[in-house]
């Protein structure tokens, strides 16, 4: 199914600061938003300054068809994300969406595990809602450096049992998501594992899932220029050679990936 990509000016209607370097921007559009799927992303313009020439890719964090809203979880990393992440209600941003493929949905009645590291929780909110809409259910396991970086815990805990880990032990189990006991019984409890976070975290989750005989889908985040498959800059190595994260992904079955290095 191909949804036509659109270039839209979105108006920010809500800015929720999660901590000092993450914010959720909820936006609306005068035009009807195209259907957005869990795992897809948008290329957001930060305007043209010396340091923000190209658009920045951000996951669709949430999408409400009835209210015609879309939200993005912005991690402030550099100049571009700082400009986008500081947009306030009433301000506009230019986006191209929807981009990329999407997570595959479990069958009705299945139970799946969603894993996220740091701002890798970004696509998990819409994913959890979509899993439930598909008649399946989910548990959610998220990890972060510390309590402050465990984000969207309230929203996620409404959609499934939430498990947490922190590297400093300030919340949940101390360690990485892969240290959590739920990772030891994947085959017994889940038909599929989804993961989004830093590459080493996704690779570690995928390794355990594959060893347990459970399918694992990961959402990659590579540096991009165009986001539409034209520049071939964002490639990842797969069993079938280089593939574009922007158009062949960002969601890949972990077995397809060779991972960088």
């Amino acid at each position: 199914m191909h949804t036509k990509k659109q270039i839209l000016d979105l108006q920010v209607i809500k800015h929720t600061s999660l901590n000092d370097h993450h914010a959720v921007l909820t936006c609306t559009s005068e035009k009807k938003l195209p259907t957005l799927l869990a795992g897809q992303f948008a290329e957001i313009s930060a305007g043209d300054t010396a340091g923000t020439f190209l658009r920045r890719p951000f996951s669709i964090h949430d999408y409400n068809k009835d209210e015609n809203t879309v939200s993005f979880l912005i991690q402030i990393k550099g100049n571009g994300s700082a400009i986008i992440g500081s947009l306030q209600p009433g301000e506009y941003m230019n986006v191209i969406l929807p981009l990329g493929n999407s997570f595959s949905m479990p069958a009705q009645g299945e139970k799946v595990l969603l894993t996220g590291g740091g701002c890798g929780v970004a696509p998990l909110l819409l994913l959890a809602k979509s899993v439930i809409a598909a008649g399946a259910s989910c548990d959610i396991l998220i990890g972060a450096r510390d309590e402050d970086n465990l984000m969207e815990t309230e929203e996620l805990s409404e959609l499934g049992t939430l498990f947490t880990t922190t590297e400093d032990g300030s919340e949940g189990i101390q360690g990485f998501v892969t240290d959590h006991p739920v990772m030891q019984e994947l085959k017994e409890n889940y038909s599929k594992v989804y993961s989004c976070g830093p590459d080493p975290m996704m690779k570690a989750v995928a390794t355990i899932a594959e060893a347990s005989g459970v399918d694992c889908e990961v959402s990659l985040e590579n540096t991009m220029a165009c986001g539409i498959g034209a520049c071939l800059c964002c490639v990842t190595e797969t069993t079938e050679g280089h593939k574009c994260v922007c158009t062949d992904g960002p969601v890949f079955n972990s077995k397809e990936l060779k991972w960088h290095n």
Binding site: D48, A50, G51, F53, L54, N222, T223, M224, A225, C231, L232, C233, C234, V235, T236, E237, G241, H242, H260
Partner: peptide
Amino acid sequence: REGNKYPRMAETPHGMLNAVGLQ
């Protein structure tokens, strides 16, 4: 041609560097 390894792109002031390598 598989082209070059990732990373293939760097943003610089008002421009970008690429090293796609004719994939």
